[in-house]
Write a protein that binds this DNA or RNA. Sequence first.
DNA 1: TAGTGGTCTAGACCACTAG
DNA 2: TAGTGGTCTAGACCACTAG
Lengths: 240, 240
Amino acid sequence: MSNLPIYLQVASDLKEKINQRGYKPGDMLPSANELAAQYQTTRTTIQKGLTTLNSEGYVSSIHGKGYFVRQPEETKYTLFFNERECIAVTRTKLLQVDIITPTQELCEQLRIRKSSRVILIRWLLYSEDIPVAHDVKYLPYDRGKPLVEAEIHYATLPEIVAKHASLFSIKKTLRIRAVKALPSTCKLLNIKEDQPLMMIEQKLYNEKNIPIGWGQLFIRDDYCNLVAVSSYSNKPEFSF
Amino acid sequence: MSNLPIYLQVASDLKEKINQRGYKPGDMLPSANELAAQYQTTRTTIQKGLTTLNSEGYVSSIHGKGYFVRQPEETKYTLFFNERECIAVTRTKLLQVDIITPTQELCEQLRIRKSSRVILIRWLLYSEDIPVAHDVKYLPYDRGKPLVEAEIHYATLPEIVAKHASLFSIKKTLRIRAVKALPSTCKLLNIKEDQPLMMIEQKLYNEKNIPIGWGQLFIRDDYCNLVAVSSYSNKPEFSF
DNA sequence: TAGTGGTCTAGACCACTAG
DNA sequence: TAGTGGTCTAGACCACTAG
């Protein structure tokens, strides 16, 4: 059953007790000294186990007092999203690449001046040769950046901006909505006006929190796979 | 600038180099021995820093070889969802509590037999006295559980099942869709048939991976706030 | 075989809490 | 003041990698 190192054994035992409500949210765990005695090991090893439990969200510590069981984050899910995988994209068609004068909304979204320019890229995404999504992206225009590459092959918004921003520190936000299709979108996707569409709005920020990209993806609901799972289930626990 | 403990200083320095592309995904970091020499500390302390970096998703290690920069998980977002907060619920109205014979779909969703019974709970959720969402929940019926409490006040699906399952190990999944409203739903929400609705389907599993609850939430798009953020941004780094 | 990461020991000093 | 967690040292032994 257990060839686990001691510190993981400790963490695993405590997790089980927490899950079985032996320790309830708000309860204090035994002190590291007590646990060290129980497991016949040193406090250092116990601390390592408690640190693990902390980083996995089970407990938190108060200096000088002890470790306490956290309230589980019932509200938090892990959502997987990218333009290609949310749909099963098999083919893409470039509709437009342009440098445009931003609208009022674009100025606000990208926090730029009316006088600046914006790159507009529009794609039609196909799944099994059926047009299923309309992808619209806006990027602040810098003379430095060549945009020819955009015309060659399809890239997700993070892929596009990743070249000009630091890797892990790009902040991304999504807003998910259900919308009525515009007549023009209906034509593009060959659907009726009453067919609801998913709209996924994506906004990217650089490490200084300045918007560097904005996108709207309109997807036929019947081809959209948007799924989220609770965050604890993919923690290194038991796996099925 | 830095009263950080050594191990966090190490982690922070490495993060910055990774973000600035000093180390690129796939690159090997300096060994713990080298870093210990650089920072004039012991390998133990360096290891602690590297462990931190690992648990934050920046690097992973291969035993006997070294630490390597990971590919950032561009696809992963943190989504916040619960029935109450996704909308700004100000009032709730119980529509129905019943014990029903499951439909074919219910049997499949909850993995139960045709002969078993299911608790059906329906609520209407109001925001500022406007009906904005229709909430339908299904729970496998056990004679043990009293269901009177369901009629007293509104509870989210996780809140309901939390009483009978272990805390952190409940697995939850969401599926997000855009749907046309049924005529009956239109009447409930007082909307036109062509107004698209968000449908959020929630399914809960216990620690043995058995479904213990299923819910469908139909929300007026204009009152639904479904937002997700990239997972790295809420890591303990800089915060704005 | 030299070097790497993974774990652990037995201590130390410190900041913090609470009676 | 006793007990707690947070950090760190200077070592040890092990499993693993790669020449």
